[in-house]
């Protein structure tokens, strides 16, 4: 509906200068530096790249990063739905404060998040001590990584779902209720389908953010190769061993992954926009 009017608009000026600047800036700041990755990776043979990429350690790091991000995004989806629902549907003291605080992970430096989460979940921290008594090690284990990833990707699902939830026509729900649907049925049949695209988009964004996270995870993870070593850390380690080929090949794979994920997110958003309730 927004694009329908775009047919005849020769009058508005500034296309060249705006587009020119935007493209120039993006090329200089992003595309040329990013192409360095391909250039560096291109210096080693395909077999070498493949060997680095399929080495047990790289694969373990990818498994951990992707798996951890998947769990973090799932946790955030479940709780994000509840939080979004609560923030939109209920009035209770402190609601506005909670609503504001949800954005904290966007604004808080990741290093600060890392050290405070470590302080909490280390065996001598408040929660770490409790968990330790229950035989669970939080910090310096994959669980710690998931916690940090959950923290940094917490706002996404909430922030994508909230507005959609806000706009669902309540009359439809009420109609469903008068037609004899239980609350749960109304939720499942009426609300769930309409927030689904937003939830998926939020999930995908949370996942993408969690996969690339470095600053907070590096403090709380044990950094053990094969066990608690995430992909960004592996890249840094390779870099510090002067192993540029190794670093770039791992980084290139992560870059391609990010790009594909983004395309999927953008497609999902387009789909969400099209199927959003009018």
């Amino acid at each position: 509906m927004k694009l329908s009017r775009s047919g005849h608009r020769p009058v508005i000026p500034g296309f060249r200068i705006a587009m020119g600047f935007a493209v120039l800036y993006m090329s200089l700041l992003m595309l040329i530096p990013l192409s360095m990755l391909a250039l560096r990776a291109g210096q080693s043979s395909w077999d070498e790249l493949w060997a680095t990429f399929t080495s047990a350690r790289t694969l373990a790091a990818y498994r951990l990063s992707l798996g951890g991000a998947l769990i973090a995004a799932t946790v955030n989806t479940v709780f994000g739905l509840i939080i979004a629902w609560v923030l939109v549907r209920y009035r209770f003291p402190g609601r506005r404060l909670l609503d504001t605080l949800v954005d904290l992970p966007f604004a808080l430096p990741t290093a600060v998040a890392g050290i405070s989460l470590t302080a909490i979940y280390a065996p001598n921290g408040i929660l770490g001590g409790l968990l330790e008594k229950g035989g669970i090690q939080a910090a310096y284990s994959p669980l710690g990584i998931v916690i940090a990833m959950t923290f940094v990707s917490l706002p996404f699902v909430i922030r994508t779902t909230q507005p959609v939830l806000q706009d669902i026509d309540q009359e439809i729900e009420e109609a469903a209720a008068t037609l004899g649907a239980s609350r749960w049925q109304a939720f499942r049949r009426v609300i769930f389908p309409s927030i689904m695209p937003a939830v998926i988009a939020g999930f995908a964004m949370a996942f993408a953010r969690a996969v690339g996270e470095y600053g907070s995870v590096v403090f709380i993870s044990g950094n053990m190769p094969g066990r608690t070593e995430i992909v960004p850390l592996l890249i840094v380690t390779r870099l510090e061993e002067y192993n540029y080929a190794g670093a770039t090949s791992v980084a290139l794979a992560l870059l391609i992954l990010s790009f594909v994920m983004l395309l999927v997110i953008n497609l999902l958003q387009a789909w969400a926009r099209r199927s959003a309730p009018v």
């Binding site: 001598n124 921290g125 910090a139 310096y140 950094n223 053990m224 380690t237």
Partner: peptide, 21 residues
């Protein structure tokens, strides 16, 4: 037997002394 492999010696000292690991 190593639970945490920090990137530098100082990180390890912190882990052992401060975090009691």
């Amino acid at each position: 037997n190593v639970p945490v492999l920090d990137t530098g010696a100082r990180g390890s000292t912190n882990t052992f002394v401060q975090r009691r690991i």
